[in-house]
Amino acid sequence: MAETLPEQRLTRRTLRDETLLVLALSLGASGVSALISFIGSVTKPGGLKEQAATLNASAAPGRPWLDLAWQLFDIATDLVPVALVAHLLLREGQNLRTLGFDRTRPLTDLGRGAAVAAVIGSTGIAFYLAARGLGFNLTVVPEALPDVWWKYPVLVLSAVQNAVLEEIIVVGYLLRRLGQLGWTPGTALVASAVLRGSYHLYQGIGGFVGNMVMGVVFVLLYRRWGRVGPLVVAHSLLDIGAFVGYALLAGKVDWLPTA
Rank of each mutant, 00 (worst) to 15 (best):
G93F: 08
P153D: 11
N137M: 09
T104V: 05
S33H: 05
T43K: 10
A130S: 08
V160R: 14
T123I: 10
I36W: 10
R63H: 13
G47V: 12
I36S: 11
A86G: 04
W149I: 09
L84S: 04
P64K: 02
D78K: 08
R97T: 10
L99C: 05
V156L: 14
W149A: 15
P153I: 09
G46H: 14
W70K: 04
L107Y: 10
G111T: 13
P146A: 04
L35E: 00
G93A: 03
A126F: 13
T98Y: 10
I75A: 09
E50I: 07
D102Q: 07
R63C: 03
L99W: 03
L66G: 11
A52Q: 15
V141Y: 02
V32Q: 01
P142E: 12
G47E: 14
A69E: 05
L155G: 00
F127H: 03
V140C: 03
G100C: 06
R105S: 07
L88I: 00
H87V: 04
H87C: 07
E50Q: 11
P142M: 08
V160Y: 11
R103T: 13
K151M: 04
N162R: 01
S37Y: 04
D102L: 07
R112P: 01
A29E: 11
T54Q: 12
L48H: 08
A59R: 12
V32D: 04
T104C: 03
L107G: 02
P61C: 03
F127M: 02
F101Q: 09
F101N: 03
G47A: 15
Q71E: 13
V156F: 14
D67A: 13
P64G: 09
S37D: 13
S33W: 06
G113I: 14
T108K: 08
K49T: 12
W150C: 06
L48A: 12
W70I: 00
V148Q: 02
D78W: 08
S33I: 15
L155C: 01
G31V: 06
L88K: 09
V148D: 01
P64I: 04
V119C: 12
L107H: 10
N162Q: 02
N137Q: 15
G46I: 10
K151P: 00
W150S: 13
R103W: 07
Q94G: 00
A76F: 05
A86E: 02
V82W: 02
A115F: 12
A53G: 07
T77A: 10
L84K: 07
T104F: 01
T123F: 13
L79T: 00
P146Q: 01
